[in-house]
Amino acid sequence: MAATKLDLREVPPADRHPKIHDAFDSLDSGETLELVNDHEPKPLFYELRAEVPEFDAEAYEVEQRGPAEFVARLPKK
C-alpha cells in the first residue's frame, strides 16, 4: 500500500487540519496518509470518521515513537 508522509511537528496548529485534509483528498483509493505529529491525533481521527466517508477508520493505526512523536496512518478506502 502506497503512503504519503506529512510531518506536522513544525506546522502551526491552526494550519494542520486543512493541510491534512488537502493531503488526504489528493490520495487515491487504497493509499495511506502517514502523519508525524507531536501528539496523538485522536480529535482528527474522530473528525475524519464522522465527516469523511473515504476514511477507513477500521484500518487506522497510531504508534508513539517518542514523548513528542506520534505516527498515524490514515488509509483511504
Score class of each variant (00 low, 15 high):
M1D: 13
K19T: 11
L48N: 03
L6E: 04
D38Q: 10
P75F: 11
P13I: 09
L27H: 07
E31Q: 15
G66F: 15
R73E: 09
G30W: 06
K5N: 02
P53W: 02
D15P: 01
A23C: 04
R16Q: 12
F45C: 03
L35S: 00
A57Y: 10
L44I: 02
R49A: 12
V11E: 07
E58K: 13
V52E: 14
E63S: 07
P41D: 02
A3D: 13
E69P: 08
M1L: 11
A14R: 14
K19H: 08
A68T: 14
A3N: 03
L74S: 04
E34R: 12
L8P: 02
A59Q: 14
H17K: 13
A2N: 15
E40R: 06
E61D: 05
P41I: 11
P67A: 15
F45S: 00
R73S: 07
D38I: 06
A23V: 01
E40T: 02
E40K: 06
P13S: 11
E47P: 00
V11R: 04
P12S: 10
S26R: 14
K5E: 05
D56C: 00
S29F: 01
K77T: 10
E61N: 05
F24G: 06
D28R: 15
S26K: 14
L33A: 03
H39T: 03
V52T: 09
N37L: 13
F70Q: 07
H21T: 02
A14V: 05
V11N: 05
V62N: 05
H21I: 11
E51W: 09
D22G: 02
G66E: 15
R16W: 01
E31L: 13
E47N: 00
G66Y: 15
R16M: 08
R9C: 09
L74Q: 11
A14M: 05
I20T: 01
S29D: 10
S26F: 06
L33G: 05
V71Q: 09
V62M: 09
H39W: 08
R9T: 10
E58C: 08
K76C: 07
L44E: 11
E63P: 03
A59N: 14
V11A: 06
D7G: 05
P18D: 09
A3V: 04
K76I: 11
N37T: 08
K76E: 11
D7Y: 08
K77P: 01
D38W: 08
D25K: 02
K77G: 02
H17Y: 07
R49W: 12
A57Q: 10
A3H: 11
A57G: 00
R16Y: 02
A3P: 01
E34G: 04
Q64K: 15
V52W: 13
D38C: 06
R9N: 08
Y46P: 00
L74D: 07
H21E: 15
V11K: 03
V71P: 03
A50N: 14
E40V: 02
E31M: 13
V62S: 08
E61K: 06
I20A: 01
A3F: 07
Q64C: 06
D28W: 06
N37R: 13
R73G: 00
P41C: 11
M1W: 10
S26M: 14
R9H: 12
P18N: 05
E54R: 00
F55V: 06
F45T: 01
E54Y: 01
A23Q: 05
L27N: 10
M1N: 12
E10F: 08
R49Y: 07
G66K: 15
F70T: 13
E51I: 03
A3R: 13
A23H: 01
